[in-house]
Design a protein around this nucleic acid. Structure first.
Lengths: 356, 356
DNA sequence: CGGTTCGATCGAATCGATTCGATACGTCCC
DNA sequence: GGGACGTATCGAATCGATTCGATCGAACCG
């Protein structure tokens, strides 16, 4: 006997299964979803028919149309996936989100800030969206999702109506770091900041640049530092990474006349980059240059340094965001959450060398 | 005048927009999709009506039902997001996939091997799926997706019908590493492998364990090593991470009588862990112990070591997978792709110390 | 001037399931 | 024996868009 494989193999649908089982589509649906009274015999018949037709279960696309839910949660990250994932903070948050939403059976759809096509933020089939920190084009994104009627959770973002905020004490924490340096005797500190705006340019931290900054996290942290070191300046980075910190550090430290005695980097990755820059320039850390970071990433291989930094609860932030999503989707009105960071004194800060 | 906000705000649909614009739904659809002859005047009228109703565009759920496409590509990764993202290889591959599929406008949906609910592998609304390497429950997953009629691309997996394979020369590359050690004079080498099966247990590499292993990558690499060092043994890891490598390393090196003169770790992360273990035990690398890895990750902070390893084109693998997905979705029949690794001689290998 | 063609628009079927209300049939109790 | 009740099942409407074929005018050409 020779088997003739039909090139066309139309996937069976619930109606076909129902027909084969000799029941109505509605009953077949009940049998699958289990959300209604169906006799055991009937259910068995339906399931057998399904097996016979090689039916894989209700089509999720049709389900999501009918139910008005797709079971998918969008996570908006930076433009370049690789950049976003290079920072352990983002991964930790993603992990926290997945932790909580996983119980709900929802999947995470990665969305980029300016993607086009079927899965852009304009038309991804998501039930809710988490905007992961440091977004520089926040307002525009919020407008889109609000129009689409999609629940929104934002990590570290400007407070906004209809957006559940998961916040961090960025200003206060930066203030703490700055005070630490001040108390050590530093008077001339410089910053290496996270991206200031959607353009993500590396460059000197001019007053105009700060004024025009749309990056909430960067701005808050600058503010915290300036509460202690009024008018302090620095360099803005294009992304949170070690390489970028190195470049920014070189820019900052190149000129020995304007060289600061301490650098406040807005992430641990950037801080490590600055340390590398210092090493390249022959500066000893912390003797010649004090450096602080932000995040509290355990950076394997940073030895012999132990970075002075603010440790923030990244996974917890993600969890809170995940719980927020769940609450919003069940029609509740969760309240904004705010996390605090903890000061960690490492070995990368010391009193400034006395001017020679 | 006081505005009365209706608590219920039914999202407008295309029909409502069409009605307001005085055209039929079909014409309104054409106006939005641009895939048909519509006069400029009509299009404007429709768009105005949409703006007036605050219509955000066609519902992606309905679109995907009608079109039979969701524009979403699933990526199946390990159970724990954090574990998966800890290995730069996975991120690199993800990045490569995103690079290619992004042009298609598709989003990446993160799926875990044994998730439940709306976004499990049984019922995620995806058009295609990429199984990222080292999957230990490959066959079961393939069966599910095949039944659902979803296009499949697998990175480093057993060849299978209807599955586009993106392969790496795991066996050959491991053979190369083993030969390198052999040529240095090593006779007693041990392995630290990637997870062998879905159970992901850490334990001695018994013959039975190897025999029963479902992890394709791990098995191939073991095979390559054994072509040179027949019967060589070692320890299997639960995940590819530095910590795990440390634990496996300690287990392997604890007993000084059975201690190997070289360790072949199946990933760079594991190799770093083994180096740490050696350091903890007071062994000098490479004088007392040679160590090789696999992947070619640039591990910042591994200094002063430069790991001897096989450099594999991870991003390229991801890109190939992405291109494969695109090809499959456009009905083509792309051919399997195979990548090769490049030997990198670092400073972590040397001739064995002569037995005292 | 009549036939043809082309462009714009419309109607209606369709994608595949869910769900509300109705129906049919037993069973139970007074 | 008849009314009340509960369970299993069914019909039909619905979710929101896309798309094929039909229709209707207008322009064009011989």
């Amino acid at each position: 006997m020779h088997v003739e494989a039909t090139p066309e193999k139309p996937r069976p649908n619930l109606a076909a299964v129902a027909a084969l089982a000799g029941v109505s589509p509605s009953t077949a649906s009940l049998a699958f979803s289990g959300s209604g009274p169906v006799s055991a015999a009937t259910r068995t018949r339906v399931l057998d028919a399904a097996a016979q037709l090689d039916y894989a279960g209700p089509d999720p696309r049709a389900q999501s149309l009918r139910r008005g839910r797709s079971g998918i949660i969008g996570v908006v990250i930076e433009d370049r996936l690789r950049d976003a994932f290079r920072d352990p903070m983002n991964i930790a948050m993603l992990d926290g989100i997945a932790d909580e939403t996983g119980s709900l059976g929802a999947g995470l759809l990665l969305l980029t800030e300016n993607g086009e096509g079927a899965a852009s933020i304009r038309n991804a089939p998501v039930d809710a969206v988490v905007l992961i920190g440091c977004s520089t084009s926040f307002a525009a994104q919020v407008a889109i999702f609000r129009q689409r009627g999609i629940a929104l959770v934002a990590i570290e973002a400007e407070p906004m109506d209809d957006v559940l905020a998961i916040d961090l004490d960025n200003r206060q924490a930066s203030h703490t770091l700055a005070r630490h340096l001040a108390s050590l005797g530093h008077r001339c500190v410089a910053m290496v900041t996270l991206p200031l705006d959607a353009a993500r340019t590396r460059g000197p931290l001019t007053e105009e640049a700060i004024e025009a900054a749309t990056g909430y996290t960067a701005r808050e942290r600058i503010r915290g530092v300036r509460e202690v070191f009024a008018g302090s300046s620095g360099v803005s980075a294009t992304v949170s990474s070690i390489e970028e910190g190195l470049l920014a550090g070189l820019e900052l430290l190149a000129d020995r006349d304007t060289r600061p005695s301490a650098v406040i980097a807005q992430s641990d990755l950037l801080a490590v980059g600055v340390i590398r820059a210092a090493e390249q320039l022959g500066l000893a850390v912390p003797a010649d240059l004090s450096i602080v970071g932000f995040d509290g990433v355990k950076l394997d291989g940073l030895a012999p340094y132990d970075l002075t930094t603010m440790v923030q609860p990244a996974v917890e932030k993600g969890r809170a965001a995940g719980r927020g999503v769940i609450a919003l989707l069940s029609g509740e009105h969760p309240r904004a959450v705010s996390f605090t960071s903890r000061f960690h004194r490492g070995t990368t800060t010391a009193p400034p060398r006395v001017a020679s």
